[in-house]
Design a protein around this nucleic acid. Structure first.
Lengths: 233, 233
DNA sequence: GGGGGTCATGTGGTCGGACCACAGCATAGC
DNA sequence: GCTATGCTGTGGTCCGACCACATGACCCCC
């Protein structure tokens, strides 16, 4: 067993046993090193891994915000894993798109089925209004688009699926932007996407699960076909 | 920008550009440190993160297997992220179960729909035969069970979904085992699970997607209800 | 007594150097 | 020709030091 794994196991056990809770601080690196009988560099390697896993956030200085604070941020590590494995070309873009369709159509169906109240839909509406601005760059448009889709996924009330969706969108953001030139007509594309978004929200509000799921599926599939993103980048 | 992030960006860029391929070796830590003008500890922190992300595998010694070799192992990092966030209690077990049902029923539907050839089903059959052994411990049984479910998910041909499924199973393995005492009758449970497994494979082989998906959904939901695992641990 | 500036303190961030264990390979010796 | 030994390069670990930063206590001046 490598020394830095001692720290990982210790922290995981402390979390599982409730000895460490979100918002609390990890012991200082020097203290942790002495407690476990290992060196500070070994502790640091473990803290780095925990940081990459979205379990701690480190900051310098003093005060309650400094040090290694326990957080629960699952999106960034999932994003990192996906991005890196997309980069190795051993994760076909087509599989990512297929997963998006599966998760998002499910979320839309769930949201429509459980009759979300209009307060939850307000964020989505606001985002759609922002996307109506006439002079958005592709980058700005897609950031709002991603936020909208993530918000929709959140309506289903499943933390894990929402996190995976958010990380999927973040991971492929660069690839999507790079594919914009493949579109024959950017303006026409945005008009279509905008009206499809409105239709999806309308279906969820109306409480018609099958319609909502179908609209989402067609929406995603249509864009990736237009952008020719269904093959490995 | 922290120094170890220099290494991460450098490696990700090299992967994306094809300058680093799977099976190749990362430059030595000392070399990397000098190339980027940073210290070896900083490089080591980055390598640790890459290792945790399933992108490199490190080993001591010399020869082609030693050093930091580029690999593509998405399951272990996903497992680690899920396990850690389950430990923080900010990821409800119910959401994980719901995700399992969604992914696995989809995979079963896909597999049944595309008429997998019997060679691909042989692994699943073999695992089911092994699970018929009369004196399996709960631990052994669930390991085989997990392997069976992961194999099924693989039949759909989506690398990402198969990886997520495998990591879900690994992450909850401990929780499942801990819940075995909740079952009123372990023997009767295994008999039921075994026959359900056979029925699922039969439906896939018969090419009846709706049946396959429905059987998988009932199978998973039934077990978690019996084991009372639908609430946070 | 109050207010503002200054320094002590503790945090992570970084560095250089050193030594160890390990695996493979070149080479010397038989 | 074969074996055994040492050389080489790899990651693994440690030590000690210094830096940048944010805070809070302290002190001086008004």
């Amino acid at each position: 067993m490598k020394n830095y794994e001692l720290v990982l196991h210790r922290v995981e056990a402390d979390l599982a046993a409730g000895r460490l809770r979100i918002g609390e601080r990890l012991p200082g690196e020097r203290v942790l090193a002495e407690q476990l009988g290992i060196s500070r560099p070994s502790v640091r390697e473990a803290v780095r891994v925990l940081e990459a896993m979205g379990v701690v956030r480190t900051a310098t200085g003093s005060g309650p915000e400094a040090g290694a604070v326990i957080v629960a941020e699952p999106v960034s590590p999932l994003t990192a894993v996906l991005r890196l494995h997309l980069a190795t070309n051993h994760l076909p873009m087509n599989d990512v798109v297929q997963t998006r369709i599966l998760l998002e159509s499910w979320a839309a169906r769930e949201a429509a089925g459980r009759q979300v109240d209009s307060g939850e839909l307000k964020l989505a509406d606001d985002l759609l209004d922002q996307m109506d601005a006439p002079d958005l760059s592709p980058e700005e448009f897609h950031l709002l688009d991603a936020e909208f889709h993530v918000a929709l996924s959140g309506l289903a009330g499943n933390v894990l699926i929402a996190a995976v969706m958010a990380s999927l969108r973040s991971a492929i953001h660069g690839y999507v932007l790079a594919a914009v030139p493949n579109l024959t007509d950017w303006e026409a594309t945005t008009v279509g996407l905008r009206s499809e978004h409105r239709a999806i929200v309308k279906a969820i509000r109306a409480g018609t699960p099958d319609d909502a799921a179908e609209l989402v599926t067609a929406h995603i599939r249509g864009f990736y076909q237009a952008a020719r993103l269904n093959t490995a980048p």
